[in-house]
């Protein structure tokens, strides 16, 4: 089921060291309430894991279900092109109730994203990246949002802070054993 999870690449949004023993990939939608619930938990997990965790966020906007999901993903891509992806990511999840174009434009100004960059994003400049994330995820078995993969394997277990830290700890320990001496 996870045989074709796309490897981490240059278009990915990555936080944490490339040589971290554990890579956690989230497929998410900025308007999805369950992703919104997971957001502070994943933040706390990142903090607890420190340099042992590489966190990757990929777009999985459910655009028919969530009217603002595509715009928000376009906004995040404009932010990535401007070097402020994670600040934008946080802003979106902290304002899930205000993701209309006017709000996004105001967030863009706060983050210093150039207007023309944001306009180009809204006109579809980064839609290929968003689509690539979506299709790659669907082919790898993403069946809803948020969908988590730990070192390439889909994780369907509980998503509370303690459970996640435990499973990530185990994955880190297993990865340490696998590394050739």
């Amino acid at each position: 089921m996870t045989r074709r999870l796309p490897p981490v690449s240059a278009t990915d949004k990555v936080a944490g060291p490339a040589d971290a023993p554990v890579t956690l990939i989230e497929y998410g939608d900025y308007e999805c309430p369950y992703c919104g619930e997971a957001y502070p938990v994943l933040k706390a997990v990142q903090e607890a894991m420190g340099a042992r965790l590489r966190f990757v966020f990929r777009n999985f906007p459910l655009t028919e279900m969530h009217a603002h999901a595509l715009r928000a993903a376009q906004f995040a891509e404009a932010a990535a092109a401007s070097g402020v992806f994670w600040a934008a990511h946080d802003m979106l999840y902290e304002h899930q109730d205000a993701l209309d174009v006017a709000s996004l434009t105001s967030y863009g100004a706060q983050l210093g994203i150039e207007r023309r960059v944001l306009q180009a994003a809204f006109q579809g400049q980064y839609d290929a990246i968003i689509q690539q994330d979506f299709v790659g995820g669907a082919r790898a078995g993403v069946n809803g949002t948020p969908c988590l993969f730990i070192n390439g394997v889909r994780y369907d277990g509980p998503r509370d802070r303690q459970s996640l830290i435990e499973v990530l700890d185990r994955a880190a320990a297993a990865a340490a054993i696998d590394v050739p001496a």
């Binding site: 089921m1 074709r4 669907a138 082919r139 078995g141 993403v142 069946n143 809803g144």
Partner: peptide, 11 residues
């Protein structure tokens, strides 16, 4: 109770 996703269909 489990959403089977779309990967099997696409394959």
């Amino acid at each position: 109770g489990l959403n089977p996703g779309a990967d099997g269909i696409l394959d």
